[in-house]
């Protein structure tokens, strides 16, 4: 794909348009039918136990509220490190995801645990700020110790066909992730709920990957619909095809709206059968979620004990 190389060197709207609009289109009904069919897989017994633990390890446990406080963040970190205080076999989550100003708190709380700190940046969730502000936002989070940056793309620019602006911004944020010799992982939030069509989701995925994203992420969680199975399916197809063409593997993070273990397992099945087992790893697939973790824990207990558990038996943080 010589267009790819050309566009990486010097992106321009027309060239990117040719590239992105040259991708095979997506038929909505067919894509949704495929996702629904994957959702009918029946995961039982040992496979289910394995899937639940894997899902826990993939959670980016998230709090993104105006009311967040250091206390709230520290409690969340504690939960992320040991989701089941009385069960040492229960793994930790992948990361704690917070606003930039909470990074120092989270970093301190997670020190030495292996649980990463992810920070949303670039005028999250709307992305409506001058580039300089977005870059400063990113740099501050990286300097405070964020391991991962969750940026939002400029959906306005994307929908207006100003693909080069979107690409340049991602590349600039990617550069900011390397502030001070660090290399924070960049997750690029497409906010698929605002992109409206699957064709756009596919194009935005490719645009983000071409521009240096380490992960592509569905949503901020602030726009409905957030993550859906069909959208995630498309993004998994995109990362699979991108690796086949460029050799570079990119991760996928559905975020928002995934609340039950049953849903999480559907996503894992989709990963398994679309991108493949290479992506069945917290390095390459994450769930952005707040309430999902507790349902995973409840199901984990049910599987271990054979009886249904209740919310009083898992922690509320």
């Amino acid at each position: 794909m010589c267009l790819v190389t050309a566009q990486l060197a010097a992106p321009d709207d027309a060239g990117l348009r040719r590239l992105l609009h040259g991708l095979p289109p997506v038929d909505q009904v067919g894509a949704e039918a495929r996702a629904a069919k994957l959702g009918t897989r029946s995961i039982k017994t040992t496979a289910k136990a394995q899937a639940l633990d894997l899902a826990v390890r993939m959670v980016d446990l998230t709090t993104l509220e105006g009311a967040d406080t250091p206390g709230k963040v520290r409690a969340l970190c504690a939960k992320g490190i040991r989701p089941e205080p009385d069960q040492p076999t229960c793994p930790s989550v992948a990361a704690i995801c917070v606003y930039g100003d909470m990074v120092p708190t989270a970093k301190a709380a997670l020190a030495g645990t292996g649980v990463k700190v992810a920070a949303v940046a670039t005028a999250f969730p709307s992305g409506r700020a001058p580039l300089a502000v977005k870059l400063a936002d990113t740099v501050a989070a990286v300097e405070a110790g964020a391991d991962e940056i969750d940026m939002v793309i400029d959906r306005g620019a994307f929908l207006a066909g100003r693909y080069a602006a979107v690409a340049e911004e991602i590349a600039a944020v990617k550069a900011a992730c390397r502030t001070g010799g660090r290399d924070a992982h960049l997750k690029v939030i497409l906010e698929t709920g605002e992109l409206a069509t699957y064709d756009n989701v596919k194009r935005a995925s490719w645009l983000a990957m071409l521009s240096g994203a380490d992960f592509i992420k569905t949503s901020t969680g602030k726009v409905s619909p957030a993550a859906t199975l069909p959208v995630t399916l498309l993004m998994l197809e995109a990362v699979r095809d991108f690796r086949a063409q460029t050799g570079r593997q990119v991760g996928v993070k559905p975020a928002g709206g995934i609340r039950t273990a049953k849903d999480a397992i559907k996503y894992l099945v989709t990963v398994n059968e679309t991108a493949g087992p290479d992506w069945l790893d917290p390095d390459w697939f994450r769930f952005g979620a707040s309430s999902l973790l507790n349902d995973l824990l409840l199901q984990r207990r049910k599987l271990a004990t054979g009886v249904y558990s209740g919310p009083d038996y898992v922690t509320v943080d």
């Binding site: 029946s42 995961i43 039982k44 496979a47 894997l54 894992l268």
Partner: peptide, 10 residues
């Protein structure tokens, strides 16, 4: 597929 082998679900 060894990472995530589906158990029989009869």
């Amino acid at each position: 597929m060894s990472i995530f082998e589906y158990a029989p679900a009869p």
